[in-house]
Amino acid sequence: MENLKKALKNFFRGKYSREEYFSIQNEFDKEQADEDFLFELEQQWDAITDEPVEGFHKQTIWNSVSSKLEFRQSGTGKTVHFFALLQRAAAILFIPLAIGFLIYFYATNSTEQEAAWAEIICPPGVRTQFHLPDGSTGVLNSESTLKYAVNFNSNRIVHLQGEAYFEVVKDKKHPFDVVTGAITVQVLGTSFSVLAYPDQDREKVVLKTGSVRVLDDNNQAVASLLPDQQFVLEKTERKYFTERVNAAALVSWIDGKLVIQNERFEDLAVRLSRWYHVEIEIKDQKLKDYKYYGTFENESLDDVLRLIALTAPIKYKEVDRKKLADGTFSNRKIVLEIDERRMSDF
């Protein structure tokens, strides 16, 4: 009894022996807590004084309590719910003139299943910031869609097509799952990005902080990622691997930066075309394998092309836009090819 009292005191102040540690662990492990143990603990609880404490942020904790209890979402009924969610879905567009944040809800009348979904759609050439009802946030990349059930707080599953970066709020009781179809990423609380465009063979998961698990389409765990690791799945071959990467660089797109690190021109072209919503054609096979480094921040497509042409042996031209039958013009199209005259300079 006296020993236990001393052990509790020592443990509480953070200096304890191995024997003391295990005696306390043993008490906590008991299914039904020991009376004496509870008594000593409550004594300790009562003795806590009102001194300032480091790391205690009352307001922050209160905010998350009241948001989890949905205090701010006063009233009930469908309409209120709709607007409350709409308000939370703030959109920031990185590229001027781009308009196209869209969120909509639809409810089917199926009797058994929870049927209301929210969908965030990011149009081509833009990035969209999103806020989920549980407080998690993130950024959706060009031409991507995120879908989640309206009862999200108790059911943290999002369906992703395209690329998204997530900063997930920790909630041990409710795991956070990102489902792409080919893989599921299971999360506790962490920041990471997932790339899964239906028309691209490779799906990728990059972990910035924390830890995530990747499951295949049979819900079998195939990888556990540590920070600065990337999981890559080749869909057609059904092959996957994990590699070490610079996660900060790979997710820098969320800040409007286009970071290219030793990337093949062919892959670079895919990224540029999504980023700027243009069509890009590479004329020479040789150029497709040419590797390129570069970082662009909020540059226009014309500036980026000019800079690439300065730092690599290429030239580019823009194809004249055709007037289509319905009176609109075709999408911009850029053709890249090797500049043979400058080949020797590089």
């Binding site: 443990f11 509480f12 102040r13 953070g14 300790q44 609880w45 806590i48 009102d50 404490v53 790391g55 205690f56 942020h57 009352k58 922050t60 904790i61 209160w62 998350s64 309590v65 989890k68 920790k170 041990k172």
Partner: peptide, 26 residues
Amino acid sequence: DQYAKRIFVFAKGYLKSNEEAEEVVQ
């Protein structure tokens, strides 16, 4: 307002983590 800090201090004493103590209060 009255009890959050007490819970925080008590939880931190046993869990040794601000993050987890915060979660306990919540």
